[in-house]
Each structure stands twice: as C-alpha cells, then as structure tokens.
Design a binder for these strands. Structure first.
Length: 502
RNA sequence: CGCGGGGUGGAGCAGCCUGGUAGCUCGUCAGGCUCAUAACCUGAAGGCCGUACGUUCAAAUCGUACCCCCGCAACCA
C-alpha cells in the first residue's frame, strides 16, 4: 500500500490567552483528522504550539515581575497540559521562543531581505499612548482613545504587494486551496483591492520581547515573520532538509475564520518570497456561538464547555464538538444540545447497543462471543454496510465533512439497533440457539467496526469498546471479531444524563 | 452602493455548484417490543424551501430586485 503523508497544523495560540473552547475546537479537529489519517495508514505529522513574543507577554511579565521567558515557561503548559487532557495526539509542540525556531526566523529574514522583499520605510500615523499602538483614523474618530499623537517611526516592510497577482492566479487555479469555498471568494474579493506592504518590525525601544532582526539590531520582528514561520521551522526548514522535504507542504492548515487573511494572504506571499510551495489546503472553520440569552453571569448559569469534560468525559465533549458543527459554518454551543446529543447518540444508540449485545451474550452464551455461522440475507446486508463504512467515512473525511462522516458511523449503529429488533435474538435463543448466536455475532462485529472508526473521535471510549470485545483487530474487514472470547462485566460507557441533575 | 455568510416542517441542520417526487437528527402524538442505560423499533402529524418577478417542459436549486438576521473591515479558534 502506498502511504500518503498527512501534515496537519493548528495555529499557534497566543501564550498569554487563557485557553478556551475555540483553541480546544481547532486542536481537537486537527487531532480527529490526524487520527483518521493514521487509521487509514497515512504517515501523519501533527503540529501545534504557542506564540510567545509580543507586547502583551512583555507587559504581563513586567506586571508579575518576571523575565518574559519565565512568564512564558509558566504559561505554555496551560496549553500543552490541556491538550494532554483532551487526548490530543500532536507529534510536536513548538514554542516560538525556542532556539530551533529563532534561528530559522532569522535566516528567513536575512534571506527575504537579500531578495529585496524587505525594505525600510518611515511611517507616520496616529498613535495611542495608552494602548501603545498605532490606531486607524476611524478608531481615532471613535473617541475611545484619550491620548493620541502623531508619531513617526521607521520600520521594515515586507513587499507583499509584489505577489498579489500571482496569489490571485494561484487561488483561481487551485479551487480547493482555501476552504470552504465561500472563504475563497472572500479572499478573492479582498484581493481586488491593491495589497499594501506588511509592517514586520518594531523598534526595540517600543518592543523588546521579540526576535532580533539580523540585519538591524535595533529592531525585532513583529508577529508575522515570527509566528507563521512555525509551520516550517518545526518540520526542519533550513535545519533538517530531509525532514522538511518529507513533510512540507502541509496537507491541511486549520484556522478559525478570524485569521483567514493572515494565512491565505500574508503567509502565502511569504512562502512565495521564499520560493516554497503553498500548503494544499487552508481550512477556515466557523465559530462556536455561546448560547446567547440563556447564559448570563448574573444568572450564574454560564456554561464553560471545558467544565463539561470533568462531568461527562473528554470523549463526550469531543464527540459533541465534532458532530454538531458543520465544518465551515458557525454553530451554537448549548448545554441542551450537548445533553441531547449525548443521550441520543452516545447513551441510547451506541452505549446501549453494546449493553444489548453483551447482555444477550451473557444470558444465552455464558458471556462467550458465539460463532457467526452461515449468514442469512439480513445478516449479509449488515455485513455489507459495515464493510463499506470505512471507505465511505474516508471519502467524507478527505472532503473535510467530519460531521457527515460521524453520521455515517452512527447510521450503522442505528441500523444495527433496528436489525436487533427485527431478528429478536432473545426470542430466537429459545428456539434456535445457533441462529441467535449468528445474529449476535453480526451485531457485535458491526459494532466493532463502528468503534474502530469512532476511535478517531473518541479514542478513550471507543478504545474501551474494543477492549471489552477483546479485539486487538483494528481492521475494517468483516470478521475481525473473535468467537470464543469471554466478555467482561462493565458499567455503562455513557450513562444517561438525567435532566433533573442538570 | 465596503466585503462576506445565512433565511428550508416546533428546534438544529443537510440539499443548492452538476434544476426533475423536500431529507436527517431532536421534539410531539399513536402503536410495538421487552434483550438493554424508562432505552430500542414502527407509523403519523407538521413545510406555499424569506418576498416578488424572471429563465425553463420543470426551481429550494439558475438570474434580477427587495426584506430580515449574523459576521468581517487588517493578529480573540
């Protein structure tokens, strides 16, 4: 089998931010894709990390009386340990203050400077003393800023404008590059106006906490040539050419819709300047809207999605986030929806099916998985649907339709519940025990295949199902379930959430 | 005329690109089953697919205009 490579990235999160549902969503999505692709046999590299430079970090560190690096060292684990909790299977975690990153950023700056794509220019603009940043005229008119003065500052600029035409052509010629499609159109719309060049530096007098620009020690580079470079510095650009060749270009760069411009325009033109290929896909997902009216701090009923993990488990939250959002649009996060999803899909359909089959096997076969025997017409239908599930799910995952892929799996679960109803092995057992055994084998084997695929979404719980069924077989071929295995007694995987308790 | 997205049975969404009996999950009502986490299965009710024109033998699907929501407008996933 030819192995495809799959290199997936999340944005690097700003270390000073408190991790929230948004960070978790992007990262879980990347994890689910990574796990699906590993299950398909692809070679996977999954990168996430944190962005540690910039003014806010510098200020926050000062406030705490710490060196910025110390401050970052304290904060970075808030992300990395959350990912551990969430079962994230990233292969690397890059921090922009790491030596391996800084070196590459500086080499790149020098390279682009030598290309003639970085130049110095004096900039004059309105500057807010309180916020320590330049503001637009509109902002100044809004009256939100008290102390505004005109400030002149020299800075370095990246000649982004040079690549405008080329980028437009590229986007048009590669319709699958920016996804979903309406985001592509948004970017093409943006590119109808002339691109201005990008300010990429800050004088050290104003911002000390950054990567020093190699050709002008009085400056540090500001965000773009620092943060975005992580996607290539982490996989060996200018340091490990073999590794770099192996992984770049990225297969999928996942971002929230808010940083679409940054990635599809700044990042891509930077890559043009470096003469590197662009990522295959930049996918901008939507946002989770937090249930609106019903939540208010005064009512004291604010839901912190990450708290649900403690109550109902990581996998339930992962499942909810992945199944509820149509990738690319926004979705609403509400406790009601979460409970509905959990109860109907996980407790009633999936978890309960496991209990049905294992209960019957316990009752009529002393807990030992029966043999499948000669399949009837109805059995073969189930076997056929289960056997093709893998390829149907694969197709959907490759199209970034994760919710639809999950639905395909749950559809099999529903069909098996129906099959149980029609075959009624609890009745069959009294007249034709082997037939009952056959039905139970078929139902359980279908459940196994569903669990194998669900491991991408719920590594822990779906893995537990396979454990219970006593299978190492993670294959998707019919018949992986072994007869003769004794099933253990186990508590319900997904106990129903009773509304009264909530 | 800044840009973009959306308006589909009670709720949440899919379908629209490549026109041709309106689909899914939840909820409601009735029935069935009783192996199971009061779960599971069947059936039913419920939609003029935002509005109006137009193209077409045929439009939720294409075109035009309008109305209403929501984002973005240069680092909050």
């Amino acid at each position: 089998m030819i192995k495809n490579k799959f290199y997936v990235t999340t944005p690097i999160y700003y270390v000073n931010d408190t991790p929230h549902i948004g960070h978790a969503y992007t990262t879980i999505l990347a994890d689910v894709l990574a796990r699906f692709h590993r299950a398909l046999g692809d070679d996977v590299f999954f990168l996430t990390g944190v962005d540690e430079h910039g003014q806010k970090v510098q200020q926050a560190a000062e406030k705490r009386g710490l060196a910025p690096q110390q401050h970052c060292d304290d904060l970075a684990p808030r992300f990395s340990s959350l990912w551990k909790e969430l079962g994230i299977s990233n292969d690397d975690f890059i921090r922009t203050t790491e030596e391996r990153h800084i070196r590459v950023v500086q080499s790149i700056l020098q390279k682009v400077f030598d290309n003639g794509d970085i130049y110095q220019k004096e900039y004059e603009g309105l500057y807010s003393v309180a916020e320590e940043r330049f503001i637009t005229e509109k902002e100044a008119e809004s009256g939100q800023f008290r102390e505004v003065k005109v400030l002149k500052e020299k800075n370095y600029f990246f000649r982004m404008s040079r690549y405008q035409e080329r980028l437009i052509r590229y986007i048009e010629e590669n319709p699958g590059f920016i996804r979903p499609e309406h985001r592509k159109n948004e970017m093409l719309g943006f590119l109808r106006q002339p691109l201005t060049d990008l300010c990429i530096s800050r004088p050290k007098s104003r911002l000390a906490w950054g990567i020093e620009i190699p050709f002008d020690r009085d400056f540090v580079t500001y965000v773009w040539f620092d943060a975005l470079i992580n996607y290539i510095s982490a996989v060996g650009y200018l340091s490990d050419e073999e590794k770099f060749k192996r992984w770049w270009p990225a297969s999928a760069q996942l971002i929230g819709k808010d940083i679409l411009t940054t990635h599809s325009i700044y990042w891509t033109t930077m890559l043009f300047s470096l003469e590197l290929p662009l990522p295959e896909v930049i996918f901008a997902h939507g946002w989770w809207l937090m249930g609106e009216s019903k939540m208010s701090k005064s009512l004291g009923n604010v839901i912190k999605p990450l708290d649900l993990i403690e109550q109902h488990g990581v996998d339930a939250v992962r499942y909810y986030l992945m199944s509820e959002m149509n990738l690319g649009s926004d979705a609403n996060f509400t406790l009601e929806n979460f409970i509905k999803r959990y109860n109907s899909d996980l407790a009633n359909d999936f978890g309960n099916l496991l209990n049905r089959v294992s209960g019957l096997i316990g009752k009529y076969f002393e807990g030992v998985i029966p043999g499948q025997g000669d399949l009837s017409e109805a059995d073969r239908e189930i076997a056929a649907q289960a056997s093709t599930l893998g390829s149907r799910v694969e197709e959907l995952v490759r199209q970034y339709k994760v919710d639809a892929a999950i639905d395909q799996i749950m559809e099999l679960i529903r069909v098996v519940n129906k099959y149980m109803e029609v075959q009624a092995p609890w009745k069959l057992a009294k007249t034709d025990l082997p037939a009952a055994g056959r039905v139970l084998y078929v139902a359980t084997e279908a459940l196994r295949i569903a669990a194998v695929l669900l491991r991408a979404v719920m590594p822990d719980k779906a893995g537990r199902v396979l454990e219970i069924l006593g299978v190492q077989a993670s294959g998707l071929v019919w018949g992986g379930l072994e007869s003769g295995v004794k099933l253990p007694i186990f508590p319900p995987l997904f106990p129903r959430i009773e509304l009264e308790k909530v």
